[in-house]
Design a protein around this nucleic acid. Structure first.
Length: 491
RNA sequence: GCCCUCGUAGCCAAGUGGUCAAGGCAGCGGACUUUUAAUCCGAAGAUCGUGGGUUCGAAUCCCACCGGGGGCACCA
């Protein structure tokens, strides 16, 4: 593909000459009193031909322009919306230059708020100045950009011409802000733990590797903050959360970006029931704030996010799907046969827990639409979760599934250092056996557990997917400002 | 990584073997004092992603490469 940057061209400009504007003529600052939305809010019901006597100063980009000889109309866009500019030649300073503005130019305008004969709310251009010129032409003013590649690479243009883009990304910002407020209102303390990890841990995933020169040390970009956050609980902070980027060296898809944002939080003295309640309350409150309702539409289907959500053990769900009673206690050959029957690829090394999980993921997970907590995952596939109080082969772990996709993962935390060491060693053996995603033994984390981790529950929520859910978008690239792409080829 | 699919001017977009590759927007020149994607007139703008090949003839068919999208695999 070619270099698809906007065409570089700025000539003519009517009588204003070919070098206009000169960069040294552009202002260093400008007064702005109002956003376009604030003006629309303040004057909701003006009659046609009204004059308000109210003078405002607005700034943004000129998105449309309608010049008719001695009278010109413009449409100014800012981050809140659009507003018409009304420019009669008799009163507009440098009227010809105003008419010669290009679509996309940054300008500021001050003047009286009024309405036209047709009743359109406008600002009369009593004074104006250019703030920055576009020297590349803006996309088609009606069609915008349709090519996703161009949209993601030139997000700075996309945000102006694709309303959904701007709306989804603004919603993301608001969701992140609301999450912070929610957590703080429950006495959680926000912390920042390392992104460089000497031992990647806290999740099953392949990490990115980097290198520190002075220490001559390979470091890994974190795949999860989990183990550091639990060290902080050991350190005496009973409620901590981190809202930050994690990195996983995996394929890209409409639901995967190599760097994504995760909320992780830990609460001492609680078990997994506590965080199931927290999750459903958080999601419900976000839905109310962002969507105005808990009865949302996602990908064309209705979905009710109201708490409480169903809680169903994983083995029970699988049993319902395949019409046969199964559990981690089922004979391993029976589970292998069932996997085969359902077209689930398996490995010799899989125990009953892993086989059950595979069955669940391939046959059941995608069928779950309404929010549900799938609980009591096999110990074999949950190396950081605490044993289930009623069944030694299970853990007190849950995943929240919404619209057929995993939204979060949480569990009563494994506090027993000996048991944790055994689980780490089991993981390390799998890693030695060629599993790139298995965990390594983290001796310092084990030392922390030796000092005592109180009963604790932890939770991780994928923020990108949560934003997708609440903004009704089906591709993660629509909720990530600058999604990972191959570098553009430039000649 | 594998499979399918797409790539025509700054943007949108017709054209699927046959004269000099439609049209629109933006940009440029001109007309126009209440428009709403304003309208009208004029001129200009294209290595048809890149490189090979088949053919008398390729945007169109074949191969490779580059980039995108979808799916599979893996995960959140």
């Amino acid at each position: 593909m070619g270099n698809s940057a906007g065409e570089l061209r700025r000539e003519g400009r009517g009588s204003a000459g070919s070098v206009w504007p000169r960069m040294d003529e552009l202002p260093y600052s400008v007064e702005v009193t109002d956003t376009t939305a604030a003006i629309a809010d303040r004057f909701p019901n003006l009659e046609p031909g009204a004059e308000t006597g109210s003078v405002v100063a607005v700034a943004g980009r000129l998105m449309l322009r309608r010049v008719q000889g001695k009278l010109a109309f413009g449409t100014l866009a800012d981050h809140t919306g659009r507003l018409q500019l009304f420019a009669p030649s008799a009163s507009t300073p440098e009227f010809d230059a105003f008419c010669a503005l290009n679509l996309g130019d940054w300008i500021s305008v001050s003047g009286e708020v009024m309405t036209t004969r047709r009743g359109e709310l406008s600002v009369r251009v009593d004074a104006w100045q250019m703030l920055a010129a576009t020297r590349r032409s803006f996309p088609d003013k009606w069609h915008g950009i349709t090519d996703p590649d161009t949209r993601f690479r030139q997000r700075y243009v996309d945000l102006w011409v694709t309303e959904n883009s701007r709306a989804a990304l603004a919603a993301r910002s608001r969701i992140v802000s609301l999450i912070r407020r929610f957590m703080e209102s429950r006495d959680y303390m926000e912390v920042e733990t390392p992104i460089f990890h000497p031992i990647p841990g806290g999740a099953l995933a392949r990490p990115f590797v980097t290198h520190h020169n002075a220490l001559d040390l390979d470091l890994y970009l974190r795949i999860a903050p989990e183990l550091y956050l639990k060290r902080l609980v050991v350190g005496g902070f009973p409620r901590v959360f981190e809202l930050g980027r994690v990195f996983r060296n995996e394929g890209l898809s409409p639901r995967h970006n190599p760097e994504f944002t995760m909320l992780e939080c830990y609460e001492a003295y609680g078990d997994y029931e506590v965080h199931m309640a927290l999750t459903e309350q958080l999601v419900e409150s976000l839905a109310r704030e962002i969507c105005g309702t808990t009865q949302i539409t996602y990908d064309g289907r209705e979905l009710n996010l109201s708490a409480p959500w169903r809680r169903v053990p994983l083995a029970q769900l699988v049993s319902e799907t395949i019409g046969r009673e199964v559990s981690v206690h089922s004979p391993i050959d029976e589970l292998r046969t069932l996997c085969e029957e359902h077209g689930v690829p398996i490995k010799e090394s899989y125990g009953t827990g892993k086989l059950l999980l595979e069955l669940y993921e391939k046959t059941t997970e995608h069928t779950l639409w309404e929010p549900i907590f799938v609980t009591d995952y096999p110990k074999e596939v949950s190396p950081l979760s605490r044993d289930h109080r009623d069944d030694p082969l299970l853990t007190e772990r849950f995943e929240g599934i919404v619209a057929g996709r995993e939204l979060c993962n949480g569990f009563s935390e494994l506090c027993d250092p000996d048991e944790q060491r055994a689980r780490f060693e089991d993981q390390a053996a799998q890693k030695a056996g060629g599993d790139d995603e298995a965990m390594a033994v983290d001796e310092d984390y084990l030392r922390a557990l030796d000092y005592g981790l109180p009963p604790t529950v932890g939770l991780g929520i994928g923020i990108d997917r949560l934003v997708m859910l609440l903004t009704d978008t089906t591709t993660i690239r629509d909720v990530v400002l600058f999604p990972t792409l191959r570098p553009e080829v430039t000649e």
